[in-house]
């Protein structure tokens, strides 16, 4: 069988630009309502907001699982549309909030190889990518394991390896620390902190957001409510309360950094 193998695409951080993005669900509920957001190349951005705010809907737009009903998403000037999907899916990868859905192949190694194989890479290169992706998240010893026997933390790292093996420019992580114990959380933050890609991290864990992401954006009702340095957003009690966000009990940011929140930009924030 002669099968031409695609030449691997070099990986680098990319800029993501979301312009006036709207999405209505078939039942009429609002997913996104004119959201505009720019994430510079190489930045780690925390995406905060209450349940149902539109965070996961936004994530699904970023690699074309959902297509824009209005507005657009660009990755380094490449518009996400049907024609660009094969390339977009090599450039933007999602970590799903449930690792069980993401790990569907019989072994971890095969699952990590699933993505690279879909892009017709040379088998030797696939093996190489699998090995390096697994070692990047400290999961080399999991290669031959069966996914359903892994712990939650191991599953999360295996799933992360599965998307890293595609060597994307942008990582979109949906609830990466949900269900992890404090040690697992710290470990994951450490691995993610070493990666050079642009990262958009959806999380309810404000301390994790503060640790990993210099910048944060708050989304509510499908719109951008605020964007700015994470520490500034998290010290704005009023802003947090309005968006059903709350720091952990006894956690006081003003002791770490007393800057008031006045300097945070708040595009789209309504006066009420």
């Amino acid at each position: 069988m002669t099968r031409r193998h695609a030449t691997p695409r070099p990986s680098n951080a990319a800029e993501v630009e979301i312009t006036d993005l709207s999405f209505l669900y078939p039942d009429g509920s609002i997913g996104l309502d004119g959201l505009t957001l720019r994430v510079p190349a190489g930045e780690r951005l925390a995406l905060l907001g209450p349940n149902g705010a539109g965070k996961t809907t936004l994530a699904q737009h970023l690699n074309g699982l959902k297509t824009a009903q209005r507005g657009s998403v660009r990755v380094d000037d490449m518009l996400i549309e049907t024609a660009t999907l094969p390339i977009i899916r090599q450039r933007v990868q999602l970590l799903f909030s449930s690792s069980d859905e993401q790990l569907f192949m019989p072994t971890v190694a095969e699952d990590v190889a699933f993505g690279p194989n879909n892009f017709d890479l040379d088998p030797e290169l696939v093996d190489e990518r699998v090995a390096s992706a697994l070692s990047a998240v400290g999961a080399s010893d999991l290669a031959g394991r069966v996914p359903h026997r892994l712990s939650t933390g191991e599953k999360r790292r295996a799933a992360l390896a599965g998307i890293l093996a595609i060597q994307p420019d942008v990582l979109v992580l949906d609830e990466p620390v949900a269900g992890l114990d404090p040690a697992g959380k710290r470990q994951l933050a450490q691995y993610l902190g070493q990666l050079g890609q642009t990262q958009i991290v959806i999380t309810h864990d404000l301390s994790f957001a503060l640790e990993l992401c210099p910048t944060a954006a708050i989304i509510n009702n499908g719109r951008l409510q605020a964007i700015g340095p994470t520490v500034e957003l998290l010290t704005d009690q009023e802003l947090l309360r309005q968006n059903s966000l709350d720091l952990p009990f006894g956690f006081r940011l003003d002791r770490l950094d007393g800057t008031p929140s006045a300097s945070a930009k708040r595009p789209g924030r309504r006066k009420s």
Binding site: L94, M105, F114, N118, I166
Partner: peptide
């Protein structure tokens, strides 16, 4: 959607012998 997200286009890839 997890499969599609990772470039699945309808045929399961043959796993390389190494795995």
């Amino acid at each position: 959607s997890a499969m599609v997200s990772r470039g699945f286009t309808g045929s399961l890839p043959h796993s390389p012998s190494g795995e």
